[in-house]
């Protein structure tokens, strides 16, 4: 009775759609839904029937992982990484997809101290442009010889008036396998997006002014390694750190220290507030343009 009432209803053409009836939609949808239901039930039963009594801790670790199965941790998938972590064979900070959130959750679960895995970049801690219309510093002599920073540094600490700054002959550029360093206005400038943290440039620089700093976020850095007294620094470079200490006074987190007449920022304490950047009289403190990148928390 009901059947006889409902079926004709299905055959009614839908308004405005020639040739399309409710039946032509309901049958495919129904068939697919039934198939999906059958397969779903089958899989659920199979999972129950073939259940492997697993390590409880491993299951807990697995729940905290993002489940991307990308293999970036070096294991075949999230399951094998979870097993390695649960057995204490792997450290909890290898998951790059889950990032900091996953690392701290795993560390808490395993009862070990969280290890931060912050992406870094090399950075030349000298901003004293040697050439161009807006040069900050100038050569005090003309160097003629082997065109490498290492050779030039051996002759009276290089030809620049600042003996602590970038020599600008590109030893780091030749050392970089990723083409991440350019010579801009006579000094080396690193492009963080191309840096792969190999630290070959750090080793190649004879002035030891290339440092590894965090890559993402509004990173502030004292881009000067000249520890000379204020007057001496000022004489040789217009963007050198003069050690005035104004940054240490405004820094709310106590991340900046002045040694000699040179400030430096402790990147693990810095909160990117930018107070030091605003007060620095010589613009020795520079910052990366982009806002801080906070690692997204992945749902487990």
């Amino acid at each position: 009775m009901l059947h006889a009432l409902i079926l004709p209803l299905f055959r009614l053409p839908l308004a405005g759609l020639a040739g399309i009836t409710l039946e032509s939609i309901a049958v495919p949808v129904g068939a697919t839904a039934v198939l999906a239901l059958v397969f779903g039930t089958g899989l659920a039963l199979a999972a129950k029937f073939f259940q492997v009594p697993g390590n409880e801790k491993q299951a807990a670790v697995r729940d905290l992982l993002p489940g991307a199965n990308c293999g970036a941790c070096g294991y075949a998938g999230c399951d094998s990484y979870a097993e390695a972590v649960a057995n204490g064979e792997a450290i909890p900070s290898l998951c790059t997809v889950g990032g900091q959130a996953t690392t701290s959750a795993l560390s808490a679960l395993m009862g070990v101290e969280a290890v931060a895995a912050v992406p870094r970049t090399a950075w030349v801690m000298c901003n004293g442009k040697r050439t161009g219309p807006n040069a900050h510093t100038s050569p005090r002599a003309r160097y003629v010889g082997l065109e490498t920073c290492a050779a030039a540094s051996l002759v009276f600490s290089g030809d620049g008036s600042c003996t602590f700054g970038c020599v600008g002959l590109g030893d780091c550029i030749r050392a970089c396998p990723y083409d991440a360093i350019d010579l801009v206005d006579g000094i080396a400038v690193i492009r963080p997006e191309k840096c792969r943290e190999c630290e070959l440039c750090v080793a190649a620089c004879p002035k030891k002014i290339i440092y590894m700093i965090p890559r993402d976020g509004a990173i502030h850095r004292v881009q000067c390694r000249n520890p000379s007294a204020a007057l001496d620094t000022r004489k040789v470079c217009s963007v050198g750190c003069i050690g005035c200490g104004r940054c240490t006074k405004v820094c709310p987190s106590g991340a900046i220290r002045v040694e000699g007449a040179l400030a430096s920022i402790n990147q693990s304490v810095c909160t990117h507030c930018g107070a030091c950047f605003d007060v620095c009289p010589t613009r020795a403190i520079t910052r990366a343009a982009e806002p801080p990148v906070i690692p997204p928390a992945m749902p487990s």
């Binding site: 089958g42 899989l43 199979a46 999972a47 073939f50 259940q51 492997v52």
Partner: peptide, 9 residues
């Protein structure tokens, strides 16, 4: 998925 479940066991 079924093959995976069975293989695992």
């Amino acid at each position: 998925q079924l093959v995976e479940t069975i293989l695992k066991k």
